[in-house]
Design a protein around this nucleic acid. Structure first.
Length: 520
RNA sequence: GGCAGGGUAGCUCAGCUGGUUAGAGCACGGCACUCAUAAUGCCGGGGUCGCGGGUUCGAGUCCCGCCCCUGCUACCA
């Protein structure tokens, strides 16, 4: 594995400040955090950006409904989000908010640059059409069936008109087609890329990028013919956060831009794969290298929604087994390239079988044997055996799952690490250290067995660190390993020798639930 | 409506260009072991591979029709 110090600028979608963080937000941040941490341990120079999207009509309305100033409202929401991210150990390097002064001036600078590079990029037009109150959108003819919006067939459409600034998106259609053709990895996974290809095949339309009655927004920086000052459409405000976070248009922005990876939800891929690249191209700025669209969590079945008033609360669920177990479950169970379901039964089952009975018990039995048979000091038996090589193959596969060559498949990487746990448990059964310990002539074999098991646990701790930073560190320190699990570079982990480490069993890593919670 | 993907053991899924008795994990039953968080290891029960036709020596795997599910169908975020 080639160690690389290249920069890795990774972003997540900024969250809309119109409510509290929920499972969907958490899945994205946890996944992005695992990717960021994994790449740090690959030796990359990572910068991990998250933040809040705080403008728009809905924010203003919600604030008004609560009788608070919009800024005070979003300040409070942002504080709650940060609280959740801190609790979940999201290792972000920067937290941007679209109400930050630097962001607002950065967006205005970007819009002016788009305008200056070609005034033709923007134009004013009176738009009129059928407006669906349900969607809060103007609908195109092909979205109207029998005079009703296909998505809200029970609502009446309203004929509305408004004069707005438009962005000439159509001008960039050939550019976008070339982009997707020349850089097949620009959008991953492939199913999302195909959707964008389908969209391009339909043909793009220019988009309106200002709103006349939008006060809680960045004022659009170009003077209109009528002199009316309009608010910038939220996405034209939000998308540039990835760029303004680098300091744009100050001098230093080129040190970080372009981003290596945008992590977004599958519902906003087109904003990131069509509009954002077109904006950057219009501004003659470099494009991000890749957009990864993850899937969603659903709560399968009616079990919970039906049982009156019972709803799955994020904070309570995190508290069930702690933040690390929660992270593990989401990343292990929900394929990061598709959708998955969350249920408490499944959470309990995975926690018990994989974390408590699997990894937790493995650590417990191995450490106990080193204490009992070797006075707590890992014996000198550095020779690597088959088990080391087999582990190594799985860890190579784990890196392949996370390095972007096939996407960012956290669930696959965790499946690889889980194989180390199973292998170590099987190895104990086969070598039976307790039997070896009864006869001093077996000392060498006993030492070799315990040493390789500690090495395996150390590898597991290092590779689990991106996914469960807290528990990985707890295991790392129980093994008596030097430094921290999160700072253990993958390139060196497989060469490590645990000889001389002082193990210390400080209680169970993943205690079994007192009584198996029966949901339902 | 259009486009795309999917329907395989109780649950979550794997099954590449068609070929021996359809696989894994979890759950369930039995056995072994005792270092360990009554954990671990081994063995086992369990499937008309959505439905109906067709091609073929042979189809979960190809073709046609039907049923069902999911996603996308851009200026709410």
């Amino acid at each position: 594995m080639a160690e690389s110090h290249e920069k890795f600028y990774i972003t997540t979608a900024i969250d809309y400040a119109n409510g509290d963080p929920h499972f969907g937000h958490a899945l994205e941040k946890i996944g992005a955090d695992a990717i960021a941490r994994f790449h740090r341990q690959l030796g990359r120079s990572v910068h991990f950006l998250i933040g809040m999207d705080e403008h728009g009509q809905k924010v203003a309305q919600t604030a008004a409904a609560q009788n608070v100033d919009p800024q005070a409202f979003v300040d409070a929401v942002a504080a709650r989000f940060r609280g959740t991210w801190d609790r979940l150990s999201i290792s972000y390097d920067q937290f941007i908010r679209t109400t930050d002064g630097a962001h607002k001036s950065g967006v205005r600078a970007l819009i002016k640059r788009i305008h200056e590079s070609s005034p033709d990029n923007f134009y004013e037009k009176t738009y009129e059409g059928w407006y669906c109150v349900g969607c809060e959108l103007f609908k195109r003819d092909d979205e109207i069936v029998d005079g009703k919006c296909v998505l809200h067939p029970t609502r009446e459409l309203q004929w509305t008109q408004e004069r707005n600034w438009f962005f000439r998106l159509t001008k960039y259609q050939p550019f976008l087609e070339r982009l997707l053709a020349e850089r097949p990895d620009f959008i991953q996974p492939e199913s999302r890329r195909n959707e964008i290809l389908g969209l391009l095949a339909q043909g793009l339309e220019d988009i309106s990028i200002t709103r006349s009655k939008l006060a809680w927004a960045i004022p659009f920086p170009i003077a209109s013919a009528s002199g009316e000052q309009q608010g910038t459409w939220v996405w034209f405000d939000a998308l540039p956060n990835y760029l303004t976070a680098t300091g744009y248009p100050g001098k230093e922005w080129r040190n970080r831009w372009p981003a290596q990876l945008h992590i977004v939800g599958k519902d906003i891929t087109r904003l990131h794969c069509v509009i954002w690249p077109a904006m950057l191209q219009a501004a003659e700025l470099p494009l991000p290298e890749r957009v990864w669209a993850h899937g969603f969590i659903s709560f399968g079945g009616e079990r919970f929604s039906k049982s009156a008033g019972v709803k799955i609360d994020l904070d309570e669920t995190i508290s069930r087994f702690g933040p690390d177990a929660f992270r593990y479950f989401l990343l292990r169970e929900i394929p990061f390239d598709g959708d998955g379901t969350f249920s408490l039964e499944r959470f309990d089952a995975v926690y018990t079988s994989e974390l408590a009975n699997g990894l937790g018990n493995l650590a417990s039995r191995v450490i106990a044997m080193v204490e009992k048979y070797c006075d707590g000091i890992v014996p000198n038996a550095a020779a690597h055996i088959d088990l080391d090589a087999l582990d190594s193959a799985d860890l190579t596969a784990a890196r392949a799952a996370m390095d972007g060559s096939h996407g960012y498949l956290c669930h696959e990487a965790l499946a690889c690490v889980a194989r180390l746990t199973e292998r170590a448990n099987l190895h104990i059964q086969q070598t039976q250290p307790w039997a070896l310990a009864k006869d001093a002539s077996n000392k060498a074999k006993l030492d070799e067995t315990l040493a390789v098991l500690i090495r395996s646990l150390a590898r597991q701790a290092a590779y689990l660190a991106p996914f469960m930073p807290g528990k990985a560190q707890a295991l790392w320190s129980q093994l008596g390993a030097p430094g921290t699990a999160s700072e253990a570079m993958f390139a060196t982990v497989e060469q490590l020798s645990a000889t001389g480490w002082h193990v210390n069993k400080e209680g169970g890593l993943f205690p079994r639930p007192e009584q198996p919670p029966k949901a339902g």
